[in-house]
Computed example of a mutant assay.
Amino acid sequence: MQNYLEFSFKISPLQPWNEILMAELIEIGFDSFTEENDGILGYIQKDLFNDNQLKNLPLFQNKDVKVEFSFTEMPNINWNEEWEKNFEPINIDHKVLIRAEFHESVPGMHEIIIQPKMSFGTGHHPTTHLMIQQMMEMDFKNKKVLDMGCGTSVLAIYAKQIGAGDTKAIDIDEWSVENSKENAERNNVELDIELGTAENLGKDQYDIILANINRNILISDIPVYESVLNNGGQLLLSGLCFFDVDDILEVCTENNLKMKKRLQREEWVSILLEK
């Protein structure tokens, strides 16, 4: 069990900055959040917290939003157990249900069953929701798939369930890798799961690449994705706010990737591109 710090962030105006702040906090080690009427509560392991990283977040330099925060140290309790108690199933367009084993099944819906540990990508975040919405309209049959920044591997699992061939999942977080292995077994699918980044990618080529990460990593890694994407292959991106899209598309154009479809949910965006 880990000692955690609880941060209370007061945000004005609340929208869309609460979601943007959560995305930035994830990048510096925060692993769970609770939304409140005037802001969010964010949680981070005490030994992972870096005061300079927090104070230098881009959002704190933005004149369009005011953020105030305070924090307290939390008692040494099992946060996984606490988080599981509040985990709710995710219904995507009444077609796909992401649930834990302790939730009831819903007849007629495609189900992905995950153990709700504190890995990003449970489906609650709008970007994961957007990725699955896009995937529902894509052809994965016998395609070779790569899931970058896989989190719980919910996207890789869904790809396998709807017909994908060899599927690799990569994440920089050890917790996510272990959780992905458990979730793959839980859903009776075979995944090649690795700890690492885009630097892990060798000469293997893929038909579909899924990357639900964040703007800066995507901009850095898109040239690598293009290099391992087959001609006619598809790159599905999210982790983007609406104001990131132009920058992303500029990099994609430079790398011979053309946008085919864009979806938006709240301030978050998913883009499907083709090589």
Rank of each mutant, 00 (worst) to 15 (best):
M1Y: 10
Q2G: 04
Y4C: 11
L5S: 00
E6S: 10
E6H: 10
F9A: 07
F9R: 00
F9N: 07
I11D: 10
S12V: 13
P13Q: 05
Q15A: 06
E19V: 04
E19P: 08
E24P: 13
E27M: 13
I28N: 07
I28W: 01
T34A: 04
E35Q: 12
E35V: 13
G39C: 11
G42Y: 00
Q45F: 12
Q45G: 07
D47G: 00
F49H: 08
Q53F: 05
Q53R: 09
L57S: 09
F60I: 05
Q61P: 14
N62G: 10
N62S: 13
D64R: 09
K66T: 14
K66Y: 13
K66G: 02
S70C: 14
N78T: 12
E82P: 06
E84H: 10
E84S: 03
K85Q: 14
P89Q: 12
N91P: 05
I92T: 01
I92A: 05
K95A: 10
V96W: 07
L97G: 02
I98Y: 01
A100M: 05
A100C: 15
F102I: 13
E104G: 08
V106I: 15
P107C: 09
P107Q: 00
P107I: 07
G108Q: 09
I112W: 03
I113F: 11
K117F: 12
M118S: 07
M118C: 02
M118H: 02
F120P: 03
F120W: 07
F120C: 02
T122R: 05
H124G: 03
P126K: 02
T128N: 11
L130H: 01
I132C: 05
I132G: 08
Q133M: 14
Q134D: 04
M135P: 14
D139L: 04
K144E: 11
K144N: 12
K144A: 10
V145S: 03
M148A: 05
G149A: 05
S153Q: 10
S153T: 11
A156L: 11
K160T: 05
G163D: 02
G163K: 00
G165H: 06
G165T: 04
T167L: 12
K168W: 12
I170A: 01
W175K: 00
W175S: 02
V177M: 12
N179V: 12
A184W: 01
A184R: 06
E185W: 08
N188K: 06
L191D: 01
L191C: 00
L191F: 02
I193S: 01
G196Y: 01
K203E: 15
D204I: 14
D204K: 07
I209G: 04
L210R: 04
N212I: 14
N212V: 10
N212F: 14
I213H: 02
I213N: 01
N216P: 11
L218R: 00
S220I: 08
I222P: 03
Y225W: 12
S227D: 15
S227Q: 11
L236Y: 01
S238W: 04
G239L: 07
L240M: 15
C241G: 00
V245W: 12
V245I: 13
I248N: 03
L249W: 06
E250F: 10
E250Q: 07
V251P: 12
C252H: 03
N255F: 08
L257P: 15
R262Y: 00
E266M: 06
W268L: 13
W268H: 12
V269G: 08
I271G: 01
L272A: 09
L273C: 09
L273E: 03
